[in-house]
C-alpha cells in the first residue's frame, strides 16, 4: 500500500465510529486504531501477510429446471437470510417443479453470503442461486 494514502484513509477513519481497522494486501498491512478521538497507525510493509488467501465463495446452483422459491409457499419468512450460518445439507431454498418441491441444500457448512435469484423466478439447470462462505475449506 503506498504510504501517501495512509493520511487519507486515516482522515476517513476519523469520520467514523470504528475503533479498529485492519487493511491487508500483498504489500503489507495497515492497522488504524481510534481511541478518544486520537488515531494511531501501524504500517507493516513486511510481506508476512501475503499468505492470506482471498475468501472463496461456494456457489450453489440449481440441480434442475424449476421455479426458485426463497420461502416455502405457506410461509412468509425466507428459508435463509444473508449472514445466517447453515449446516451442510440444510435447505437454503426450493425449486418448484409442478406440484413438487425440491430442496436446494447447502453443500457444506457455511455462512450465506448472497441470495442471487429473486423469489418465484424461473431458473434453468445450473443457475447460480446462492453464495456460501464455507466455514471449513
Amino acid at each position: 500500500m503506498p504510504l501517501q494514502h495512509v493520511g487519507q484513509i486515516s482522515a476517513w477513519f476519523a469520520g467514523t465510529d470504528i475503533a479498529l481497522l485492519e487493511l491487508r494486501g500483498p504489500g503489507g498491512s495497515l492497522t488504524l486504531r481510534q481511541h478518544h478521538g486520537s488515531i494511531t497507525a501501524d504500517l507493516d510493509e513486511n510481506a508476512s501477510c501475503t499468505a492470506m488467501p482471498p475468501a472463496v465463495l461456494d456457489v450453489v446452483t440449481a440441480a434442475s429446471v424449476g421455479v426458485f422459491l426463497h420461502r416455502h409457499p405457506l410461509h412468509e419468512a425466507p428459508l435463509v437470510r444473508v449472514g445466517e450460518r447453515m449446516q451442510a445439507g440444510r435447505t437454503l431454498g426450493l425449486l418448484r417443479i409442478g406440484a413438487l418441491l425440491l430442496p436446494v441444500a447447502a453443500p457444506r457448512s457455511g455462512i450465506v453470503a448472497g441470495v442471487l435469484v429473486a423469489h418465484d423466478t424461473m431458473v434453468g439447470f445450473g443457475a447460480r442461486l446462492f453464495e456460501l462462505l464455507p466455514l471449513q475449506p
Binding site: 409457499p73 405457506l74 418448484r96 406440484a99 413438487l100 418441491l101 425440491l102 430442496p103
Partner: peptide, 11 residues
C-alpha cells in the same frame, strides 16, 4: 425422501 409438495389448498 427429502422433498415435498405444494399443498393443494394453494395449487
Amino acid at each position: 425422501t427429502g422433498f415435498g409438495l405444494v399443498p393443494p389448498a394453494l395449487a
